[in-house]
Design a protein around this nucleic acid. Structure first.
Lengths: 251, 251
DNA sequence: AGAATAGTGTCTTTCAGACATTATGAG
DNA sequence: CTCATAATGTCTGAAAGACACTATTCT
């Protein structure tokens, strides 16, 4: 099979974004309304073409900024940067009816943003609970209203992104990417509960996260924004891998 | 940013394969010698263009069969099929000097094949220990001979593939993909030792794998192909996820 | 007999799960 | 005072790490 670069089939390459956040104790994804055919008027994941001289990750970061005003995390531990990583690539021949398009999906984990979507294209973008976007096959019996399905194969991509997020927070400290720069143990626990859709024991959770070296760094401050006794504030520590991992309860 | 399919930059899309196996207690990767520029004469990962009407996974499976004669696993638990999964996508603008190429890398875990590479393009393909292909940055101080670097960004791809394999056998039963259809506990342990580059306690390992439901199914047969006391033969069970996981020793 | 590998058992430590109790601030 | 949440502590059981011992075959 000779390597003949002049005889390759031409592809379009796009990046699609699965942008996840936790709002009101629910895992939500960013979706935009399509203004043109195909799938006009339907909700879809944000995304766009990779430019001629642009790296894949750079294209994903550019789309993220255009849609949300967020910037990918810089490791200064301060800014409300979002976590960005490549998710997977989707290239079924018929996934776009117009032409052959290969989409490199990326996963973004972001803290809850101040209202609509600051800095984003106001043009019909919104946060929707993943439980609503994904049919019943997501988490057992879901009986809420089923939203119209997403455009293209975006439901499949979203499902893969949610699954990646769920498994990654088990063995990494990435759950902190859903929190503001300073947060309490209880807020972090509610992130785990929202992403996994379970209830965790607050005492065991506290012991686990405060006992894992490098996971959380106390800032010295306290807050009562959740009501009740003032809680210590923490920042994400330097550790990225959790060993031993946080265990997701069975069933 | 209007979605204008007529104004997209054209890309070539390829699949590259990280095909791993365990030979003589070493983790090895399949590499082929390049017959043309660029990087003529250097070793590279096998791969090729995705065809016009071909899914990404189908392209990877086709390349795998062309190069090795292997077929991706069918879940009949019998055939010596290989495990195939998507790894990641690489698309730096300058990764191929001729044109803009996006490569969707796939990871293949295969049992040790009967000599050279049956059914493959005989044209200069060989198994090379990953330790030799990857410089020192792989596993601490490696003092063996350093092989000439791989073409393109294939060293980076190979490194990512090896890392994926190392972490996946922790929490899945995928290590059995490196074994023939029937194998002993000791042979499976040597797979873990080769992939992780560590020494495991045979007694604790035996307790762990035989005590995990669905991991191994005894076939009733025994073998003495390793010398010593005859060992029971097993086949891979239905379980795919290991819970709790197999723990990789520190350091 | 000696070497090599397989298989079982025991002790200890670590850690998750279950649950009680006290602490602190808001209304 | 009551309520809500935070924080610490105790007991128990599951499982990993370390290591001793027996079993079976080959040379």
């Amino acid at each position: 099979m000779p390597y003949d670069p002049s005889a390759f089939p031409p592809f379009a390459v796009t990046v699609d974004l699965v942008v996840l956040t936790v709002r009101k104790d629910a895992l939500c994804a960013l979706v935009v309304r399509r203004g043109e055919p195909p799938y006009q008027g339907m909700w879809a994941l944000p995304g766009g073409f990779v430019r001629d001289d642009e790296d894949l990750e750079a294209a994903a970061a550019r789309e993220l900024t255009e849609e949300t005003g967020l910037h990918p995390q810089v490791p200064d531990g301060q800014s409300a940067g979002a976590h960005l990583e490549q998710l997977a690539t989707y290239g079924a021949p018929d996934r776009d009816p117009r032409m052959r398009v290969v989409s490199v999906a990326h996963l973004v984990l972001a803290p809850d943003l101040p209202s609509p979507i600051a800095g984003g294209d106001a043009r019909g973008a919104r946060w929707a609970p993943t439980e609503t976007l994904l049919g019943g096959a997501d988490g057992a019996g879901w009986d809420g209203e089923r939203q119209a399905p997403l455009a293209f194969d975006h439901e499949r991509i979203l499902r893969d992104g949610v699954e990646r997020a769920r498994s990654k927070i088990e063995y990494s400290s990435l759950a902190t990417a859903f929190c503001p720069s300073e947060f309490t143990v209880g807020e972090l626990r509610r992130v785990y509960e929202a992403v996994w859709g379970v209830v965790l024991d607050p005492r065991n959770f506290h012991r686990k996260v405060t006992g894992t070296p490098g996971f959380l760094v106390p800032t010295g401050g306290t807050t009562t924004r959740q009501g009740g006794r003032p809680a210590q504030l923490f920042r994400a520590g330097g550790a990225t891998l959790l060993n031993p991992p946080m265990l997701r309860p069975e069933v």
